[in-house]
């Protein structure tokens, strides 16, 4: 099999994205396994300086794609730029990490090349054909697929690769490649940004106090708010709660909400449906407060209190205050 492995390295206006290390590590590892050369793909002039950072992960070649149309991020311009590069160098694989942009750009590339695209893969192997394992249901299920195509376009499931620097004195060659792009593709380039400066977010909080249908009402969340505040944490909730309009969707944990990874997840009145669980399962510790001993959240949690949350939480709040005073 000919051709190199291209890996799309995400950046935002020249700032390397946190997922870049995952992408480069995965690509280098695949390159070693398939005995193929790996090249980073940096889209836009703003990314030209990122070559040295790619080198730290042991990738020795980077293409920096430039065109006046490649100003800020745009799925169509970025996708078509990678297509232009692929047409020049005939890669065997085009990889990314399955972030919003990683999946969006590779879907564009695949659609434009008329090739299959395997999003959120956990295993990539080459037998007689490409054999891939990929995530379904936001991680609750895995799917083995065979991809019937010489060119594999795939993203790696976000957070499934541990980024690893490559030891030694790593050199990288950065080749600037001018690409011809139809200016009309600029129609989906970012026009404006609103920067938010928030403190602790749901996805970064070390304590999440979460409520489900068992909380019973929007007002019922006052107790959870108080406990979360005391512990410097954030309030989360289940989809039953957002559907009832008790909390904003920004607080929802799960497959279609936020993935969290706190030191402790306190799940109150949540049954632990699989779609909720996939959002919470990366928590280091879980305490379930539930009246039902058999609830999935309880049987999967490391710790549980089997009682009415409206009695337990005020008692916990009192106890925290007592020990602190």
């Amino acid at each position: 099999m000919m051709g190199e492995i291209l890996v799309f390295v995400e950046h935002d206006q020249g700032q390397l994205s946190p997922s870049a290390g995952e992408a480069l590590t995965a690509a280098r590892e695949l390159g070693e396994r398939l005995s193929q050369k790996t090249a980073a793909v940096l889209v836009g002039q703003a990314a030209e300086g990122l070559g040295t950072m790619c080198a730290e992960y042991g990738v020795q070649l980077a293409y920096c794609l430039t065109s006046p149309v490649l100003s800020d991020y745009g799925p169509e311009t970025w996708g078509q730029a990678i297509v232009e590069l692929a047409n020049q160098c005939s890669p065997s694989v085009i990889l990314s990490v399955g972030t919003d942009r990683g999946n969006e750009v590779l879907a564009q590339v695949a659609a434009r090349l008329g090739a299959p695209f395997a999003a959120n893969s956990t295993v990539v192997q080459r037998g007689d054909a490409w054999e891939i394992t990929r995530v379904q249901w936001g991680g609750s299920l895995l799917e083995d697929i065979v991809v019937d195509s010489e060119l594999l376009i795939a993203s790696y499931n976000h957070h499934s690769i541990e980024p690893a620097f490559f030891p030694g004195d790593n050199e990288i060659e950065v080749r600037t490649v001018g690409v011809e792009l139809d200016p009309t593709l600029g129609r989906t380039v970012i026009r404006d940004r609103v920067t938010l400066t928030e403190g602790v977010t749901l996805s970064t909080a070390s304590v999440v106090v979460s409520g489900g249908r068992g909380v019973g009402s929007a007002d019922g969340f006052a107790q959870l708010e108080e406990l979360a505040d005391l512990l410097g944490g954030r309030v989360g909730c289940s989809r039953a709660v957002t559907n009832n309009g008790w909390r904003s969707h920004a607080d929802q944990v799960g497959q279609t909400g936020t993935r969290i990874a706190p030191e402790i997840y306190i799940a109150c009145g949540i049954s632990g449906a699989i779609q909720h669980w996939v959002g919470a399962m990366a928590s280091k510790n879980i305490l379930a407060i539930n009246t039902d001993r058999e609830a999935n959240m309880v049987t999967k949690a490391g710790y549980a209190v089997i009682a009415d949350l409206h009695e337990v939480i005020p008692a916990v709040i009192e106890e925290v205050k007592r020990r602190r005073s």
């Binding site: 090739a115 299959p116 395997a118 054999e131 379904q136 991680g139 609750s140 299920l141 895995l142 799917e143 083995d144 697929i145 065979v146 991809v147 019937d148 195509s149 399962m281 305490l287 379930a288 001993r293 309880v298 049987t299 999967k300 949690a301 490391g302 710790y303 549980a304 209190v305 089997i306 009682a307």
Partner: peptide
Amino acid sequence: GQNKVRLHRPEERVTETNVLGE
């Protein structure tokens, strides 16, 4: 070009639940 071979479940974490009280 994408052919499904089979579905399977990821390995589940088995947890012994420590009940702190009722």
